[in-house]
């Protein structure tokens, strides 16, 4: 076990190109984009259900078209998540630090700090 540690001790520093790619891919899979996508799909499904069968939509609720209201609210929430991720992206330095401080994290994981 001890020996293969040596293989990992130092990572070659990332090139500018690799850094840019890492930042891009991390931002694309930001949790806000994932939730935005989930709410987009759910919003479409719920709104469509409400539009396709308006009578069923109101039958249990005492007159509120709950699928339409919920579906449209989810679509708005989805848009807000996308906008938020777009205009306040994860800082590039945060993304890069977590790759560059590997030796430090490894030491902490070994209980050496």
């Amino acid at each position: 076990m001890k020996n293969d540690n040596a293989v990992h001790t130092s990572y070659a520093p990332l090139t500018e190109q690799e850094k840019a790619r890492l930042v891009r891919s991390t931002r694309r899979t930001d949790i806000r984009n994932i939730i935005g996508a989930l709410f987009l799909v759910y919003g479409i499904l719920v709104t469509a259900t409400g539009l396709l069968d308006p009578a069923a939509d109101r039958a249990l609720t005492g007159g509120i078209a709950i699928n339409l209201w919920t579906g449209i609210s989810m679509l708005i929430a989805s848009a807000l998540f996308f906008v938020w991720a777009k205009f306040a992206p994860v800082p590039a330095e945060d993304i890069l630090t977590s790759v560059e401080n590997i030796d430090e994290k490894r030491a902490e994981g070994e209980g050496a700090l």
């Binding site: 939730i35 989930l38 709410f39 005492g62 007159g63 709950i66 209201w69 919920t70 929430a77």
Partner: peptide
């Protein structure tokens, strides 16, 4: 943690309509 954050929003999206309809009824 990511799943907890996502779960939070989904459970809210399910419980808010329930509360609204319930209060209406």
């Amino acid at each position: 943690i990511y799943n907890e954050v996502m779960q939070f929003f989904v459970i809210v999206a399910g419980l808010v309509p329930l509360t609204v309809v319930g209060l209406h009824r």
